[in-house]
Amino acid sequence: MYLGIHYGFSLAVVQKVNPPTEEEVSKIKEGATFVSFLYPAQNGALVKELSQKKAFCDVLIF
Rank of each mutant, 00 (worst) to 15 (best):
H6I: 01
L11W: 00
T33I: 12
Y7G: 07
I28H: 10
T21P: 08
V13H: 14
V17Q: 05
Q15N: 06
K54S: 14
L60I: 14
M1P: 02
Y2G: 14
L11Q: 10
Q52A: 15
A45I: 07
A55F: 01
P20V: 07
I61V: 12
T21C: 03
P20G: 10
Y7W: 04
Y2D: 12
D58F: 11
I28K: 12
Y39S: 08
A55E: 03
K48W: 01
K16Q: 14
P19C: 10
G44A: 05
G8S: 09
M1W: 02
S51Q: 11
I61E: 13
I5H: 14
L60R: 12
A45N: 11
F62K: 13
G4M: 05
Y2T: 14
T33W: 13
C57R: 10
Y2N: 15
E22P: 01
N43S: 03
F9L: 08
Y7E: 10
A45V: 04
Y2R: 15
E23D: 15
V13N: 10
L38W: 04
T33C: 07
S26Y: 02
E22F: 01
L11M: 13
F56D: 13
E30T: 08
V59N: 13
L11R: 15
E24D: 10
H6T: 08
E49H: 06
F9M: 06
L50N: 07
L3S: 12
E23N: 11
F56P: 00
I28Y: 03
I5D: 12
T33D: 09
N43K: 07
S10Q: 08
K54N: 15
A55P: 01
Q15H: 08
N18F: 00
F62N: 11
S10W: 00
A45G: 06
F34N: 12
E22I: 02
V13K: 13
L60W: 08
Y7I: 06
A32Q: 05
Q15R: 08
S10I: 00
A55T: 12
T21D: 06
N18S: 08
V13S: 14
V14M: 06
Q52P: 02
V25F: 07
F9Y: 15
V25M: 14
Y39R: 13
V13E: 09
M1E: 13
F56W: 13
F9Q: 08
E23M: 10
C57N: 15
K29M: 02
V17F: 03
F56V: 15
F34R: 14
A45S: 09
A32F: 00
S10M: 03
G8Y: 03
L46K: 13
T33S: 13
P20S: 14
F37W: 08
P40A: 08
N43R: 12
T33Y: 07
Q42G: 01
V25L: 10
Q15K: 08
S51H: 09
G31T: 03
V47W: 07
P20M: 05
G4N: 04
V47D: 14
F9N: 02
V35T: 05
N18D: 09
E49K: 15
E24I: 04
V14R: 04
T21Q: 08
L50G: 11
N43G: 04
L60C: 10
V14N: 04
A55V: 15
V35G: 09
E22R: 06
F56R: 15
G8M: 02
